[in-house]
Design a protein around this nucleic acid. Structure first.
Lengths: 314, 314
DNA sequence: GTTTATCATAAGGTTTTATTTATATATAAT
DNA sequence: ATTATATATAAATAAAACCTTATGATAAAC
């Protein structure tokens, strides 16, 4: 059976009017054109759909079935069109994000704002570690990833959108917090609580010390950023973390920034996507938002943090 | 937007495989043919449906929507086809009936009429005794059975559709036929020609006399209704039979109804089907016909009979 | 009986569609 | 760097779909 939408469309009009001539007028066609469409449809199902008694037309039983089908299918098509338009105009859509756990906190802030601007958009957010992020990108299971130090050469396109200061922190009573300036030599006498090898933060820190031709002592390493901060609070060692993860701890004064020479280490946060990937409309908009439109929200978030940074230098 | 079913069909296969080459194989087409169908579909909605990252294909969001639509519409089309085939079988179907021999005569009248309404229907009619009827039903070898007193608890569904008067008959010159009213006491002095034990008619008669706490004398019993009537004509005894079997004999005046107190015994004719059996379309139609549409034919058949009944009372 | 309205049929032509082969391009694997 | 695999593009063509005009047929209305 090989129907055409044209046949269904024409048949629908005929079935509504039960009159070929008037149907032809509605369709701006000649009457035979209409008759032929119906006839072809009847040939497809090998059954009469319309029956002529005297001068009047009637739908046969099969004709009624066909009419139902035609209307249903055409309505679904209209719905589909609507959905597509909505997706195109961002009144609908699904934004699939994944973020590094260290970025979680401030990304959620941005998302809260973004969601208000686009209330009908559905958002999925996956918070996970570096390797899972890369896997998600590879499998095309998310639109965009936000992370600290994207690897190169993975067919990825990374755009920095915000500086990401790494700072040294410890519990407030630590003797170094009282100092106006701590030299690197002094610093490396301390023991550190670190992110695991291979993590973005760890790589950045290793590179930094390597450039200074210094080595640091790792007391513990763990993969959870919150656990690291907690360890620092408990005095297990100094921690080097993104300042953006410290909002709560600085406010509650459970941690304090140590003003070390050469710190903060300025890295960046990146929006990452697969090279060649055509972003969905909503993903495009979100990326633009991150790169340009979210300044206010970011400012609001980072300003208090930078204040703490200034304080540590006084 | 002017899609074609072809595009949807091809797109569905591609969406399932996410691989043009394999889709082409399934469709017995060249690979470019497939690519082009998809491309045309994309042009229709003016949005990419499939995206290629590296060597792998993925559906876009809109692609997913389209895929849903395609599958839904095609499934509906399959359903429609099925429905149409079923409807068509109404015009080429096969109605398999079985009737109790006593019902034979008037059922054939109905069938003659029904066959005129549905000229392309093939009809099988089996006329047989009660136990064979039940066996046919049990083996699902017929659609419907028409009989007098369906047994209960055999997973059967029986619908009464016509009253079935049992009357006492004998040859016209019998002394009882002259009487205006014959009492039951008088009746049981007579000898009877009966249907065999276990037959529907016999069961009904036995029940009737048991309720009256009377006993009747069986001179002969036989399984053939026509033989019973013949025996009654020959004066071997009174017969109690369904009035519906008497059309010829009453007309030819070879038998006459005796007006006995409490007679006729009103039983019913039933259409019987296996419980849970999905009747074929044509069987459904025939059952509807019996239950409602055949009134005229039945009336035409029974009216003369009831006249004979009235006469016997005068 | 004639007219009118309506559908069916036929012939003809234009456009669109479906498909193939051949070839180019791109990616991943070796 | 080369090869193998998959998709994209182009050109050609055969088939079909679609529509029109002209005409025939039928039933109801006048």
């Amino acid at each position: 059976m090989n129907l055409t939408f044209r046949q269904l469309k024409v048949f629908d009009v005929v079935a509504r009017h039960l009159n070929y001539t008037r149907a032809a007028k509605e369709l701006h066609l000649s009457q035979p054109a209409v008759s032929m469409q119906v006839k072809q449809l009847e040939e497809q199902v090998d059954t009469p759909l319309i029956e002529k008694l005297g001068k009047k037309l009637y739908l046969t039983d099969v004709g009624h079935e066909m009419h139902n089908y035609a209307r249903s299918t055409m309505q679904q098509l209209i719905d589909l069109e609507e959905t597509i338009v909505q997706m195109k105009t961002l009144q609908q859509g699904h934004l699939k994000l994944a973020v590094a756990s260290t970025a979680n906190h401030f990304v959620i802030r941005m998302l809260a704002h973004f969601a208000k601007i686009h209330p009908k958009i559905r958002i999925s957010l996956e918070v996970t570690n570096r390797s899972s992020l890369l896997e998600l990108l590879d499998k095309n299971q998310c639109d965009l990833v936000i992370m600290g130090s994207p690897p190169e050469g993975h067919n990825l396109m990374a755009s920095p959108f915000l500086e990401n200061p790494l700072v040294v922190v410890t519990y407030p009573e630590h003797r170094l917090t009282a100092k106006k300036k701590v030299s690197l030599k002094e610093l490396i006498k301390e023991e550190f609580v670190m992110r695991e090898e291979g993590s973005g933060t760890r790589i950045a820190i290793e590179r930094f010390f390597a450039e200074q031709e210094l080595e640091f002592k790792t007391k513990m390493d763990m993969s959870n950023n919150r656990a690291i901060k907690h360890a620092a609070e408990e005095g297990l060692g100094l921690a080097i973390v993104s300042m953006h993860t410290l909002e709560l701890e600085l406010k509650a004064k459970t941690l304090k920034i140590v003003n070390v020479e050469g710190f903060p280490i300025y890295r960046h946060w990146y929006v990452v996507q697969r090279e060649g990937k055509r972003l969905s409309p909503i993903a495009t908009v979100f990326k633009d938002y991150i790169m340009e439109g979210a300044d206010d929200v970011i400012e609001e978030f980072t300003a208090p943090l930078y204040k703490h940074l200034e304080q540590s230098a006084n």
